[in-house]
Design a protein around this nucleic acid. Sequence first.
RNA 1: GGCGACGUAGCCAAGUGGUAAGGCAAGGGUUUGCAAAACCCCGAUCGCCGGUUCGAAUCCGGCCGUCGCCUCCA
Length: 470
Amino acid sequence: MTLRIYNTLTRKKEEFVPLEPGKVRMYVCGPTVYADAHVGHAMAAIVFDMVRRYLIYKGYEVHYVTNFTDVDDKIIKRANETGEDPMELANHYANKYLEHLAQLNVMPADEYPRVSREIDEIIHVIQGLEEKGYAYPVDGDVYFRVLADKDYGKLSHRKLDEGLAGTRVEEDERKEFVGDFALWKSAKPGEPSWDSPWGPGRPGWHIECSTMCLHHLGETIDIHGGGNDLIFPHHENEIAQSESLTGKPFARYWMHNGMLQLGGQKMSKSLGHLVTIDEFLSKHNGDALRLLIFSGYYRKPVAFTEESLESAERSLARLRSALRPTVGDQSTGPDADALRLATEDARIAFIQAMDDDFNTSSALAALFDLVRAINSARDAGVGGPFFEAAQRTLRELSGVLGLQLAEGAGGDVGVAAKPFIDLLVSVRSDLRAAKQWALADKVRDQLAELGVVLEDSREGTTWRFDKMTG
RNA sequence: GGCGACGUAGCCAAGUGGUAAGGCAAGGGUUUGCAAAACCCCGAUCGCCGGUUCGAAUCCGGCCGUCGCCUCCA
């Protein structure tokens, strides 16, 4: 079975063939760190984390690089407003974002390059472009000469003549062509700057990603990812810079995730229309966001609403339900056989779905089919190797999607509360044995209000924290 | 205005030529002291109009609606 990936460049699903057999070079555009990240950023991180995990599951060795833009107009602006040092401000938000990614169970990247640490390389790349006639300096700025790049526009499928001209807000008479974009910006007073052949200044936005890819992954990478709002101009310009310099294809597969929608609109940092990752994590865990995202298709917009979140939380509980132990001991027979077959089917269906451009919605359907099979088998008294194998498979495939399926731990407070909850549950069991239903129900109801869910069964009472994990 | 995407049951959402996956919610049932969880049963002809075809949600044309990019943006 082969993996097919939708390539924005060709607008087609293509069979995935990496440049070097068995190895994947992957770069994903990271955030500009000037404010708290929001769940839209989390979506991009989660989508490409899923892609990476699946590639690893398929046996590839993945070299994964994602960057931080820590030198930027907005960072400087923000720092001036708050009186902070721009680099410290950026550092603060970058570190915070790394913590968020960990909480969202996003695998750490192999490298997290930052603009501020790549200045020398960036200058080299700009010099190279200048030598080849693709860049020109003006008063300490350096611009990319778009008209020199004959296939400019091939990613976003824009035509230079009509499409660009006239629509640009930023007219600048010093530029040869309105579409030319800055590679290097001369320093203004009070801004962070670095020395360069063109005088003190700082890199433009697009050049950093080209440089980092070149520096950390090589001239041609396999997968370049990011939000679809980056297609133009950011990724288009990256291609122009990189390919003009090296003469080689920049990225073999361009993948773009759709936007998270809040109230029917794109979640956006600059519009202040957002839910921060902090806000999200104070009420939910990362699995819930993953389920919300994966119930759709990564390329399409995803609605982020109270309802869709609630639905995700409940389907998460459903996945977890299949991981509860069995007390059955029926290790052979028709029920055990059925479970064995269902396990095999689920794996095949899961892989088929994921091979088709990461169709997580269908992949999840395969997991839910397995959940039903496991729960039915448990009800039928199945235990033993097939039951364990089924649960192991569910954990494994969920893990490919980055789902942890851990029961809520209740955080530090919850850990401390555990012995007391056990005690209450134990006392309640005595009450039930004595048929003191009213008191027993009172204990159960009041624990429920505190976020502790009790479930009675023939084998006794189990409890768990509701939703929240720590 | 240019480029692109989307419109499937109450909600979310797969499916791109052969009579519609899955999740949530609602309803009925089994189980339970009652609940919860689990299990079983139960729902749509696919925005509208026209066309191609033996046959279309799936292809083509038109219309309506929503969204994204064209300016910083995951």
